[in-house]
Amino acid sequence: MKSFLTFILLILLISCKNQKTNYIVYYNKVLIADSIMRFENDTIKSLKKYRKVFKKFEPKNDDRLNEFENFIILSDYYNKNFGGKKSLLKLVKLNGYNWETKKNDKKIIHLLEKYKVDSSDVNNVIKNWNKNLNKTLIDSFKIALKRDQEERPTNLKLVKKNVDKNARLLIWTFENYGFPSSDKIGWFPMPTFLTHMIESDKYPYFEKKLLEYVKSGECAPRDYAMMIDYNLLFVEKQNKTIYGFNGVEIIDSIQVNKNRKSIGLPGLIHNSKIRKDLKIKKSKQNLKNT
């Protein structure tokens, strides 16, 4: 009996280990923490939520939410534990693709100095991040980006030919390297590139495959949603939206909110608040720079 129970426990442990992490769960938990901060103005409660999420998931740092960065900055402000030097180096790595800009951020500089993260520590993280980039993919996607814009939108025949080439490159990348995320190719205008895949005959494949990468945390939900909605409007010529991205008037906001949540996007009101706060933040930064 004992050996049987041990066998069952082993099977359960292996099963749990093999389960893929679903980052849609992560995104929704992060959005709960973010909404507590924005709408309830309860930073301490929000930080507790964030801490639980980051214990279970490797953090992201969305360019609109900056969830891990805000968690660190606010935790330090309220004298709450955020992981100290280890978490700061993780934040540096998450910003590897734009570190040349980020390294001048006064708040980041202050935290690095306060927690004794010296320049050699930071340089090693960035050096290793750059070392792990895929040079072959970087070169391929640089060419693909030029090809994507070549004579667009005047020469439709050439545009279609180039989209097909880029679609083949993307499929080849998926099959050999997975999704071409920033930790593989650095900065890349992925939203634009993916939305142009609606012009490819392989679009049904991308619609299915990219959802897998949203779940794995490699493809941003926003990039996926834009592609889906743009396909509805420009290819299928349907005057409706699934996720609220194609500029069509939203009739059923309840359904759109459900759709957004299903892939880890903020609800429409929450999204509007995020955009408003970003606009205010940028205006304040511009005033400081003048």
Rank of each mutant, 00 (worst) to 15 (best):
L94P: 01
V125E: 02
F179Y: 10
R152A: 09
K102Q: 09
K165E: 14
N176I: 04
R152F: 15
T101R: 10
K160L: 12
T154R: 12
G178W: 01
D76L: 05
D183T: 06
W99L: 05
K86G: 15
V92P: 00
A167I: 14
L133P: 07
K116V: 12
F174K: 03
F174V: 07
I171S: 05
K146E: 01
E150W: 15
S75I: 14
G178F: 02
D183P: 02
K157N: 13
N134H: 05
S75A: 10
N95P: 03
N162D: 05
D164L: 09
K184D: 08
K90G: 12
Y97M: 04
T101D: 12
W172V: 00
A167E: 14
D183N: 08
K146Y: 00
R168A: 13
V122H: 02
K93Y: 04
T154D: 07
V125Y: 05
K93T: 06
K107G: 09
N132G: 07
Y115M: 02
K160N: 10
K165T: 12
K142R: 05
K146C: 03
N124W: 05
N166E: 10
K93R: 07
K165F: 14
D139T: 15
L137H: 01
L94Y: 03
V125M: 06
L111E: 04
N98D: 10
K135P: 11
S75L: 10
I73K: 15
K116M: 07
W172F: 09
K160V: 10
D105V: 01
K135Q: 11
K106A: 12
N176R: 02
T136M: 03
I143V: 13
K146W: 01
K86P: 07
N132M: 08
K103C: 06
A144R: 01
D76M: 07
I73P: 02
L137I: 03
S87P: 07
R147E: 11
L89C: 08
L94K: 00
K142H: 03
P153Y: 15
S181T: 11
L156K: 13
V163T: 15
V92M: 02
D139G: 10
L170C: 07
V163E: 11
K86S: 15
K116W: 09
K157F: 11
F141Q: 00
G83T: 10
N95L: 10
L169W: 04
N162F: 08
I126V: 13
W129E: 08
N132K: 04
L158S: 04
I171E: 05
D183S: 04
L145M: 04
S75H: 11
D139L: 11
N155F: 08
L112R: 06
S120H: 07
D148E: 08
K135F: 13
S181M: 06
L170V: 03
N166M: 08
K85C: 13
L137W: 02
R168Q: 14
N155Q: 03
K93S: 10
N95D: 05
K160H: 12
S75Q: 08
W99Q: 06
E150I: 08
N79S: 15
G84W: 12
K165H: 13
K161Q: 13
N123V: 11
R147F: 01
L133R: 13
F174D: 07
K106H: 09
N128R: 14
I138R: 00
